[in-house]
Nucleic acid binder design. Structure first.
Length: 259
DNA sequence: ATGGCGTAAGTATTACGA
């Protein structure tokens, strides 16, 4: 089973590039971030005609997440638990029923800039809620994964110019520690379970020729429970997507599971 | 330290991103 995560930076702007990538990459499941659309305006027919079931959790203008799946989706929930007053659409869960039942969580973690400040406080509070949900997933002792745009550069090797990110909310020690606190509960970070070393990125800024200079960062991740990690066959980044027409600033990352 | 670019809303200009 091939499962991908892709921050598309606006469904309207990716109305051609997203279907083109789906047709080529043929993921069984795709979790999307930054759909920047309300549910009613999401072009679900575009994906249903390709055989995908579609579940969205959108809002006006900003954020918004979705799950596309060729297999049935069950027990869909929207919103990260822990703050009923949080109106930002950044979390969706569903169970995909294949050979194993797999719980899939799609997330768009807050950016947090400028830091310090209220946006950074929101990021860290959101990560604490994420830690609580992650701990509950582990307690179930079943195959599950959390995939999406974490807006965290885990280590210096995950940035082409780590010194440029030192004070940024994506790389500050508090953000990295909060990310590790979740991973250290017992998750496997899929990409690093398969590939070591620097030079692997999932985001290149639109500005200042970042793509042409390969000035990227790796911020889109898969965290697997032990039962999901047992099934991990591969994890890769579809880097070349960034060089196509009208690209998102992120590229897809995917895992292959023996599920 | 900031903009550089891109997106959405909305139709001029601002908010936001990373």
């Amino acid at each position: 089973m091939k499962i991908a995560t892709y921050n598309i930076n606006g469904i309207k702007a990716r109305i051609e590039a997203l279907p083109d990538w789906l047709d080529e990459a043929q993921p069984d499941v795709a979790v999307l971030q930054e759909i920047k659309s309300v549910d009613e305006n999401f072009p679900r027919e575009l994906f249903e005609e390709r055989g995908y079931n579609v579940e969205t959790h959108g809002q006006k203008s900003f954020n918004g997440v979705a799950i596309l799946s060729k297999l049935p989706l069950e027990d869909v929930t929207r919103g990260l638990p822990g703050d009923d007053g949080d109106e930002q659409a950044r979390w969706i869960e569903a169970t995909v029923v294949g050979r194993h039942a797999l719980r899939i969580c799609g997330l768009y973690l807050p950016n947090g800039n400028p830091a310090p400040g209220p946006k950074f406080d929101y990021k860290l509070a959101w990560m604490e809620r994420l830690r609580a949900r992650a701990a509950a997933l582990l307690e179930a002792e079943e195959p599950a994964l959390m995939a999406g745009d974490y807006n965290v550069i885990p280590q210096d090797e995950d940035a082409a110019r780590p010194e440029a990110w030192r004070e940024d909310a994506l790389a500050r020690p508090e953000s990295r520690a909060a990310f590790r606190r979740i991973v250290n509960l017992g998750f496997t970070e899929a990409f690093r379970a398969r590939t070591r070393g620097p030079g692997h990125y999932s985001f290149w800024d639109y500005q200042a020729g970042a793509w042409n200079r390969n000035d990227g960062i790796r911020i889109d991740h898969f965290l697997l429970t032990p039962q999901a990690a047992d099934l991990l066959l591969d994890c890769r980044i579809d880097r070349d997507v960034r060089g196509r027409d009208k690209p998102s600033d992120h590229v897809p990352v995917w895992v292959e599971l023996d599920a």
